[in-house]
Design a protein around this nucleic acid. Structure first.
Lengths: 215, 215
DNA sequence: CCATCAATGTGATAACTCTCACAGAGTTGT
DNA sequence: ACAACTCTGTGAGAGTTATCACATTGATGG
């Protein structure tokens, strides 16, 4: 795989993720090869867009035929780095934290949950799965450092998010995924993604309201 | 509020949502007025971007001064339509469904949970909150129609999502928010947002891998 | 009441992303 | 072996989004 440049649109990365989903389904449905036309229909992206997206990373298809479903899936996984195994921790084992703590899912996307933290004393000590016991948030820094954890997932309430982020950074974290409904601020060198579920709600509210206003 | 045109970038809508978050925080921190400069610093958006975003919808600031924090928040809520009260149902009361079923939160964003469904017979009959009891998925269509539910939230596993979507549509749903890790297909006239949490994981994996490869 | 100042609102411009159309490459049938 | 055909990969162009720079407006102080 040759990464030509590093000027890949973020939208492309997002789509690659959906391509994988479709490719998995296509394999189950017994399509060994697939054209950009049909794949586009499956994942609701234009064929040209798919070809362009893939072309950023190399040539994966066979002209006159299409793409080998299995091989393309493997290639995209390689591109996205889903074959890695990043030591990861989760902070905030509330409802959302628990929902996300689907270990198999994380594993499939390259993350290996190695620790979990919560500030609620009642939760501390609970064993979530083999070897993972909820620790108090006071132990974040030392545990992250000690276990060489590289990724942190924040699922705390909004008001705790920034402090937690700082503790994780102090422990030497390299990447953060923040589900709390506030943006957190971290040093330049930390890879950060703020995921705002409420903004999705807002977006739907907006679209619905627009629709109503038009009529 | 005068909506000049309907050519508003989706990114703008997304940012409006984050502006609200920041404005709420700013009020707590006792800032009655705020400049685009400072607001930009708070929510990590350029000042020019903020002004441009707002300019799509009207003029909300005072030159030489800035924006009235409270008033601007109210304006944005009005723009996004968060003052509505859409009758809403949730399908799939698993971990993620439960996590999202924070009634207060939904209410705050303009949705009113009116029904919940699950295919698991063990869950059917459970009372989630005053008046909301989990119903079997076989009752989706008739309940949606009967209660005039307009919004559906899908938090089922991937393989059930499309069928559920179709049942909701058959019942007369107008908007869908799909959290299942598959895109669903619905008729043109239905407002649909696919929210892919796994694609956020993939995105982080990609960014981290990039970083590692560079070094 | 006028001058000064600060921050908005916005047209012009730059950057980015998507779409189109087709040349090129590989496959299949004769 | 060649012709006909299919679908990819991609440069060029269209469209969209973000940035910049500044004219404009209202507040403030002397």
């Amino acid at each position: 795989m040759k990464t030509k440049e590093c000027k890949i649109p973020e939208a492309t990365i997002k789509r690659l993720s959906t391509y994988i989903n479709c490719l998995e389904r296509l394999q189950v449905e017994n399509h060994p090869v697939i054209s950009s036309e049909l794949l586009g229909e499956y994942c609701q992206v234009s064929p040209a867009q798919i070809r362009k997206d893939l072309s950023y990373f190399g040539e994966f298809g066979v002209r006159g035929v299409g793409y080998d479903t299995k091989k393309l899936e493997a290639e995209i996984k390689e591109i996205l780095g889903l074959n890695n195994n990043w030591p990861t921790c989760v902070v905030g084992v509330g409802k959302l934290g628990l929902a996300l703590l689907n270990f198999a899912l994380f594993r499939k996307h390259g993350f290996s949950i190695t620790a979990a933290f919560d500030s609620d004393p009642a939760k501390v000590g609970t064993e979530l799965s083999a070897g993972i016991t909820i620790q108090p948030t006071t132990e974040i820094e030392q545990t992250v450092t000690g276990k060489k954890i590289l990724i942190g997932i924040i699922t705390t309430p909004a008001d705790a998010a920034q402090k937690v982020a700082e503790q994780l950074v102090a422990g030497g974290i390299q990447g953060l995924l923040n589900f709390a409904p506030t943006k957190v601020k971290v040093p330049e060198e930390i890879t950060l993604r703020n995921v705002s579920i409420t903004s999705e709600l807002d977006n739907l509210a907006y679209l619905m309201t627009q629709k109503r206003r038009r009529s």
